[in-house]
């Protein structure tokens, strides 16, 4: 059985080392926060200037001056800190952030990331902090379905969509398998209801099974 979105988030959360400083991208990656183990010591960074971000704010907690990168109201945890945008991206670019989790349109076998533009001629380009995060965090985890709605694979020999960053993805978490991109071969870390043989048939990238 392939994984539900919730199960994917649970697996990503499991793989975040205790005590990590982590940035969760907009959309599905945000749900990883729901599955972090209490006491894990994981500290969430949001690029609009905060460490120690808490859960979403509800009711009277909602404060327009306290939002996440998706501009949703959030809460602060004990030990939180605020800083300006240049500092926020300096801590990212400077290699202080342990893990960043993002969605993707495509990831290449070599770890190139495409997640900001489909390159459609009528699209309004908008990159936000994705390019900075892609090359800044020590590890970039991608969460996506392995196949697009039309059945085409999103783990590809080389990205056809415009790149966000080159060779920056360390793990790809999908609904049917988890992959570790590499220079020559993609390692299959874990599978969920699919065989390596079927993956090899449906993907146009060299795979090696993890021992």
């Amino acid at each position: 059985m392939s994984l539900t979105r919730e199960e994917m988030a649970r697996i990503v959360a499991r793989d975040i080392p205790d005590g990590s400083y982590v940035n969760l991208g907009i959309g599905q990656p945000t749900t990883v926060a729901d599955f972090l183990r209490p006491g894990s010591g994981v500290v969430l960074h949001t690029e609009n200037g905060m460490l120690g971000m808490g859960r979403p704010a509800v009711g009277d907690e909602i404060d327009p001056d306290l939002t996440n990168a998706g501009k949703q109201p959030v809460t602060e945890l004990p030990g939180a800190s605020y800083f300006h945008h240049a500092d926020s991206f300096a801590m990212m670019r400077g290699g202080h952030l342990d893990v960043c989790i993002m969605g993707a349109f495509q990831v290449s076998a070599g770890g190139d990331l495409a997640n900001w533009s489909t390159g459609a001629p009528d699209a309004i380009p908008a990159v936000g902090g994705a390019m900075d995060l892609a090359i800044g965090a020590k590890q970039v985890f991608v969460m996506m379905t392995l196949f697009a709605k039309d059945g085409s694979p999103k783990l590809v020999p080389s990205c056809t969509y415009p790149l966000t960053g080159r060779g920056c993805v360390s793990r790809v978490y999908t609904d049917v398998a988890t992959f570790a991109p590499g220079a020559d071969v993609v390692r299959v870390v874990e599978t969920f209801g699919i065989s390596i043989e079927e993956l090899s048939t449906r993907l146009d990238v060299p795979l090696v099974s993890s021992p």
Binding site: E47, H85, A86, A90, M92, R93, I124, V127, M131, D132
Partner: peptide
């Protein structure tokens, strides 16, 4: 933007701040 009435320069957020 779609009416061609405004120019846009997209800058990655960290580069914009820096």
């Amino acid at each position: 933007y779609r009416a061609g009435k405004i120019e846009l320069e997209v800058v990655p957020q960290g580069n914009l701040a820096e």
